[in-house]
């Protein structure tokens, strides 16, 4: 076995939590199969404070893979939507966090991520499933995405303020 660093353990643990949240999210029915609340993005939002850029990108990749495995969509077109949405939104969230730092809250970062993810998925839906009529589902899709991102962002904001685990990890990282 190759030696595994402490940061790799953190990546693996957060990826496992992404899988766990995907599992919880699976319980909630969706009007469209690729539509998600985004609960599994919580570990990525936390990781923005705890991991290096490369490790965050690795975590995003593992999240996509884990989601496909847990939800059993790895071999379906849903995976393509989910993967494209997650990869683009994750990268967008990372870039905004790096560029704006504390000037943008996790609610803002989460909203931007959801917007990017939903837009990418709408464009894919336009070309792969619905054709031009894809934009009919655009408004409700974006509204639901925005509301769920607001809720998740608010939750993530409270989590980083109140979590004992997060405080411990941050202390160790800074110390």
């Amino acid at each position: 076995m190759q030696s595994v660093s402490r940061e790799a353990h953190m990546v693996a643990m957060l990826a496992a939590f992404c899988m766990f949240f995907s599992m919880i999210e699976y319980l909630i029915p969706k009007p469209l199969p690729f539509m998600r609340l985004g609960l599994a993005n919580l570990p990525i939002l936390i990781a923005l404070f705890l991991l290096s850029d490369r490790k965050i990108l690795l975590l995003i990749f593992l999240k996509v893979l884990g989601q496909g495995l847990v939800n059993g969509t790895l071999f379906s077109y849903i995976f393509l939507f989910s993967a494209a949405g997650t990869l683009c939104s994750g990268t967008a969230m990372l870039l905004i966090f790096k560029a704006a730092g504390k000037r943008v809250s996790l609610i803002g970062i989460c909203l931007a991520g959801a917007l990017v993810s939903n837009m990418v998925q709408l464009v894919l839906a336009r070309f792969f499933i619905f054709g031009r009529s894809a934009f009919i589902i655009g408004p409700p899709f974006l509204i639901i995405g925005t509301v769920s991102a607001l809720i998740l962002g608010f939750f993530a904001e409270r989590f980083v303020e109140q979590s004992k685990w997060f405080a411990l990890q941050r202390g160790e990282r800074n110390g």
Binding site: Q2, A12, A16
Partner: peptide, 17 residues
């Protein structure tokens, strides 16, 4: 491999969760 070690870890933690 490195990715293999990482995937083993992810599965390990998922199992623990």
């Amino acid at each position: 491999g490195r990715l293999g070690s990482l995937l083993s870890l992810v599965f390990f933690y998922f199992d623990r969760i």
